Structures are given as C-alpha cells and as structure tokens.
Amino acid sequence: MRLLALFAVLAFLIDQISKYVVIHVWQLWRIREIDVLPPILNFRYGENRGINFGLGDGISVWVLIVLAVVISLGVLVWAYRAKLNRISMISAGLLIGGALANVLDRLIYGYVLDFLNNSCCGFDNPFVYNLADVFIFAGAIGLIFFGEDAEKATKKAAKKPK
C-alpha cells in the first residue's frame, strides 16, 4: 500500500505543480496559447466543466466530485483487499492521484484546468487535457492489463505444468 500511496501523492503533486506553473506563472490563462513544439506539443488554456473531452458538460460539479471520490475509494479498497502486485499498485496510485488532483481543481475553480494539446500529421486536435488525465488513463490501463491479485498469480504459476 505504500507504493500506491507514493504514486498517488506523486501524480497529485506533479499535476498540480504543472497546472500552477503553466497556467498561473506563465499566465496561460491570459495569453491562451503557447506553442512548445508545434504541432506536436502545445499549451492551450481550457476549462473542463464535464468529464473527459468536455463530455457531460452541465453535470453538477458536486456530482463529478462525489463520483471521483467514490471511484478513488473503490479502487483503494479493491487494491487493499486484492493484494495487488507492484505494477498494479503503481497503476492504482496513478489513477487515484490523478482523480483527486482533478477533484481539487473542481473544488477551487468549479472546473478542471486543462492545458495540454497535441496535433500531428494534418490532424488538428481541438481537445485539451492535463497530466491528471494522463495519470488516470495510464492507471486504468495498467489495472486492466496487470490488475491481478499477487497471491492468485503465484498460485496459478505454481499450478502450471513445467
């Protein structure tokens, strides 16, 4: 569980620090656009009032906060009970830390601050996201592919004929 907690805290802090630097210190909120490595990496100011990609715009901010907290607690309880392997614990930590970082945004601003934008190869991507979204996505993918109970995996490996 320490690994989960460590990665949850790291994901949370990295997201919040990146938002603070890019949006407030570099004043992206005011200038709206910074081309970093165009078109592959751009900073574009965004206020996400929905779920991902602006879906669910208009849903109560409190519903989204409660939903994120409930999902985070569910993942935490599941990780504790299932005795997950190291990769799964890291994945769970990333998911929880990212979700709680976006919860903090909703509590402070009423929406999630987004600033990352990527386009490539003639495709002009209109969407923006943040590092918390990256952590949530990476954590979910990690849990899908590696989210196996460590004890069950050991027993299954022991039963395989050699």
Rank of each mutant, 00 (worst) to 15 (best):
M1V: 04
M1D: 10
M1N: 09
R2F: 15
R2N: 15
R2E: 13
L3Q: 13
L3M: 15
L3R: 02
A5Y: 14
L6W: 14
F7K: 05
F7T: 15
L10V: 12
A11W: 00
F12Y: 15
L13R: 00
D15T: 08
I17E: 10
S18H: 02
K19N: 11
K19L: 13
Y20R: 09
V21G: 01
V22T: 04
V22R: 00
I23M: 08
V25E: 14
W26G: 03
Q27S: 12
R30D: 15
I31G: 08
R32I: 13
R32N: 07
E33V: 11
I34S: 01
V36S: 09
L37Q: 01
P38T: 06
I40K: 10
L41G: 05
N42F: 00
N42Y: 05
N42R: 15
F43V: 11
G46C: 14
G50Y: 08
G50R: 06
F53T: 03
G54K: 13
G56A: 00
G58L: 09
I59W: 12
V61R: 09
V63L: 13
I65G: 12
I65V: 07
V66C: 09
V66P: 12
L67M: 04
L67P: 02
A68L: 04
A68E: 05
A68H: 01
V69M: 08
V70H: 08
S72N: 01
S72V: 05
L73C: 08
G74R: 09
G74F: 06
G74Y: 04
L76H: 12
V77S: 00
W78F: 14
W78E: 10
A79H: 07
R81F: 11
K83R: 01
I87Y: 05
I87G: 06
M89S: 10
I90V: 15
I90W: 02
S91V: 04
A92V: 10
L94N: 00
I96M: 08
I96P: 12
I96W: 11
G97Y: 04
A99L: 01
A99N: 03
A101D: 00
A101W: 02
A101Y: 01
V103H: 08
L104A: 05
L104N: 01
D105W: 09
R106L: 04
G110D: 08
V112P: 01
V112E: 00
D114E: 15
L116A: 11
S119E: 06
S119L: 13
C121M: 10
C121R: 06
G122S: 13
F123M: 11
N125F: 13
F127I: 08
F127A: 13
F127L: 12
F127P: 03
Y129C: 03
Y129L: 08
Y129E: 05
Y129H: 06
N130F: 02
L131F: 15
D133I: 05
V134A: 10
I136C: 03
A138G: 11
A138I: 04
A138T: 07
A140G: 12
A140C: 07
G142L: 04
G142I: 08
L143Y: 09
L143G: 10
G147K: 11
G147E: 11
A150N: 07
K152A: 08
K152C: 05
K156P: 00
A158G: 02
K160L: 06
P161R: 04
P161K: 02
P161E: 03
